[in-house]
Design a protein around this nucleic acid. Structure first.
Length: 493
RNA sequence: GGCGGCGUAGCCAAGCGGCCUAAGGCGACGGUUUGCAAAACCGUUAUUCGUGGGUUCGAAUCCCACCGCCGCCUCCA
């Protein structure tokens, strides 16, 4: 089965065929860097990360572009709204570019934690002002735009297909309740391509129309075209950007080029926290940094970034996901189970006997792989793909029980875990740091001593003393585990 | 007002006309193991898919109505 993906433009799941055979150009709307990344960013970028990983797994040569918006879109479409970056800059008493730099670094740090692959290109909006001016000029020359008082607007009445992505038409929109504040526009639906800057506006550039700054839909069109061509295979973003952002991108790009701007529009759904929209005023606005540290009042503990990733992958990218402490805890438990199983398998590779791979295991691995691929090909059904990983754990467990299982068999299982769970889903790591190996020798020796003392107590049936040692260690975050054969191991809680 | 989505076991969630007497995860319970635990492993946990109609040989899956929830339509991932 070939890869199919839901295309918002056609409202159908379509067989995926890139414009150029074997090559995929993918553009995803990136963050506006005026604050730390939050849960919404996590869902969005993990979803698109898996899409990129899946396309690469299928053998496509993918160029993944994700912009960094470092010139604030306006906080308000009307006219005098502030630039979000400038606003944050004023709050922090720093230059807007310093704000952009700081939060860009923060963003990549968080995405790295979530194991999202870096985009091939992360173009900055401010680095593409000349190209944006060029596009505005082209639209003016072709009669799709008009100048008013140093600003330039796109004239939506000249673009017949305006509304095709979001399923809106101009009449409906004009009947809507939105108040028209900007009297410069000919039509309320017209949108700014270039805005005249007031002298106190920090971020501004020279243009043929005077000092100003670009409109908020322009950068994506320009950078997508520059790096991926006039027609890009995939353009991704949050569903809330479908209108007006993506609709406007289509209008300005297709008006200028006369060719389709995007072949497949892919939108991911949003997140809620405890069943409600995440909002700063609702007290449920969670930053990724808070999540990873457990530093938020709705969280009972810190969560492993990859457990968060797993939670995201447990539901479909087009479904909304509700983050709650309970959901995170459940995902963390599931994630821990996968991790522990993989570690156990890898230990066995070193200790198991030599020999060929069990043919029965080979068969089961092939079945699992086929099921995984089928699920991913069906519009990225990561939930089912993940369930295959748990089936693999079951298979591994049955082999771990057997003394006859060979090292090659474990190697084969591990390889599939790495491929599907690692390369594609990004939740299985190549290497795991074992707590014990990390600690210095002294700690090891001390633990050894404690365990010996406890062993003596147990031999003497002095369980009171034995339990006292164990309980005290739990307080210090250390868990003792008595294994068959009188062996005791320890690990951190 | 316009657009879109959702309602499946205690919780999360896949399935979207027959393979469904419905994946998988979490939790719970029972077992193996243990001095007792923990962990791990094995097993059990929805004859039923918000409610009521309809279409069909056949529906969780299609249609209609109703109830409930959510998102977008302002920048937002």
């Amino acid at each position: 089965m070939a890869f199919s993906i839901y295309n918002t433009l056609t409202r159908k799941t379509e067989a995926f065929e890139p414009v150029h055979k074997g090559q995929v150009g993918m553009y995803v709307c990136g963050p506006t860097v005026y604050g730390h990344a939050h849960l919404g960013h996590a869902k969005s970028y993990v979803s698109f990360d898996v899409l990129v990983r899946w396309l690469r797994y299928l053998g496509y040569d993918v160029t993944y572009v994700q912009n960094i918006t470092d010139v604030g879109h306006l906080t308000d479409d009307a006219d005098e709204g502030e630039d979000k970056l400038a606003k944050q800059a004023a709050r922090e008493k720093r230059h807007p570019m310093a704000i952009a730099e700081y939060y860009t670094a923060s963003y990549f740090e968080d995405m790295d934690q979530l194991n999202c692959l870096r985009p091939d290109i992360s173009p900055r909006a401010t680095g593409h002002i000349p190209e944006q001016i060029e596009l505005v000029q082209t639209l003016l020359d072709k009669g799709f735009a008009y100048k008013v008082n140093g600003s330039v607007y796109f004239d939506v009445s000249t673009f017949k297909e305006y509304g095709k992505l979001s399923g809106r038409n101009l009449e409906d929109m004009q009947a809507g309740a939105r108040v028209e504040i900007n009297s410069e526009k000919r039509n309320p639906a017209d949108f700014a391509l270039w805005k005249k800057a007031e002298p106190n506006h920090i971020m501004q550039w020279n243009s043929p129309w005077g000092r100003g700054y670009p409109g908020w839909h322009l950068e994506c069109s320009v950078m997508s075209m520059k790096y991926l061509g006039q027609t890009v295979d995939i353009h991704g973003g949050g569903i809330e950007n479908q209108f007006p952002h993506h609709e406007c991108e289509i209008a300005q790009s297709e008006a200028a080029n006369g060719v389709p701007f995007v072949k497949y529009w892919v939108h991911n759904n949003m997140v809620t926290v405890n069943g409600q929209k995440m909002g700063k005023s609702l007290g449920n606005f969670i930053l990724l940094k808070q999540l990873f540290k457990g530093d938020h009042e709705v969280l009972s503990r810190a969560y492993d970034p990859l457990a968060v990733r797993q939670l995201i992958l447990q539901s479909h990218y087009r479904s909304p996901i509700d983050f709650s402490d309970a959901a995170l805890t459940a995902a963390q438990s599931g994630y821990d189970r996968i991790t522990e199983a993989v570690i156990a398998i890898r230990k066995k590779i070193n200790s198991a006997s030599e020999g060929p791979v069990d043919p029965d295991v080979v068969h089961q691995l092939e079945t699992a792989k086929a099921r995984f691929e089928g699920a991913m090909n069906d519009d990225l059904n990561t939930s089912v793909a993940l369930s295959v990983l748990f089936e693999l754990i079951k298979l591994a467990a049955s082999q771990l029980e057997k003394n006859s299982a060979t090292a090659e068999t474990f190697k084969a299982i591990d390889t599939l875990f790495c491929r599907l769970g690692g390369d594609v889903l990004g939740i299985v790591k190549d290497q795991y740091m074992q707590a014990a190996e990390n600690d210095d020798e002294l700690l090891d020796h001390l633990m050894q001593l404690m365990m010996e003392q406890r062993q003596i107590a147990r031999k003497n049936k002095d369980f009171k003393a034995a339990d006292a040692i164990r309980d005290k260690l739990v307080e210090y975050g250390v868990i003792l585990e008595d294994k068959p054969g009188g062996v005791t191991t320890w690990r951190r809680k």
